Simulated assay, not measured.
Amino acid sequence: MNHQGPAHHGTPATSAVPIYDDAFELQASPNMLAKLETRRSVPMRAFDPMPIPAEHLNRILSIAARSPDHGRLAPWRFIVVEAEARRSSGERFDALYAARNPGLDASKSDMWTLYMMRAPVTVVVVSRPDPNSKIPEWDQILGSGAVGMNLILAASAHGYATQWLLKWPGRDPEAAAILGVQTGERVAGFIHLGRQTERPADRVRPDLEAVVTRWTG
């Protein structure tokens, strides 16, 4: 089947949400399958420092937000760190880390600044379950994982590489608070995005025989 609607040929449209018909939605997409079959995380050293255009990032975030969401609560949010905010956040992380670790080796005095400067954009996925909702908290927490994976796939579809990490700045409440993470919220991950400068080797993937069972009653 051929779909003749807008926003599927040439440069992706970003100003409007495309309207897809049934023929498009039911059509197999070899390119999408190939992207999914070859997706892999990129080491932090392999990001090109070139900024991501705002229209690309906005579309990636919009697609990420179309993730499964039991109760339509959006029990997550995004914090975007880019441009000079990368350096300022890293410097504040370094200051806090040094205060927590007296006698820290001088070679590690700027490690969090270097970390935040590696990728042109970092999207912090924050889990914020609503304790007053009838939707189970576990469902809401899983939603932050779903939105994070959707973000990664949207970035891949746009031609960007990603790395999802959860290091000290995301695990420590005081460090996370530097970015505006509030009481009752938790960081699900720092998702780093950018163009890759090298093709990383793939890793061994799970054997389906080891992770799939079929219930037959």
Rank of each mutant, 00 (worst) to 15 (best):
P43C: 12
P18E: 01
M1P: 14
I135Y: 05
A157L: 05
E55P: 05
D130Y: 00
E137L: 15
I178S: 09
P30R: 04
M1A: 13
A175Y: 10
L61H: 02
R39T: 03
G184F: 00
R195K: 15
E82F: 10
R214G: 01
V204A: 15
D172F: 03
A83Y: 09
A177L: 13
G189Q: 04
R100M: 15
F78V: 06
L96H: 10
Q182Y: 00
A23W: 06
P169H: 03
R205G: 09
L57C: 01
K167I: 15
R199I: 01
S144K: 02
T197G: 11
H56C: 01
R118P: 13
R59N: 12
A28D: 06
T183S: 09
E82V: 05
A16R: 10
H192E: 00
A201I: 05
E84P: 15
S89R: 12
V212G: 05
T197Q: 11
G148K: 06
S89P: 07
I63V: 11
F24Q: 10
P75H: 02
V211Y: 02
G71F: 08
E198T: 10
E137S: 07
L193T: 04
L104F: 08
N150W: 05
H70V: 03
S67I: 06
A54G: 04
S67Q: 05
A34L: 08
P12Q: 06
I63W: 04
W76P: 07
V81A: 15
S15W: 12
R45H: 12
M32V: 10
T213I: 12
T183K: 14
H158W: 05
G189I: 08
P12S: 05
K167L: 15
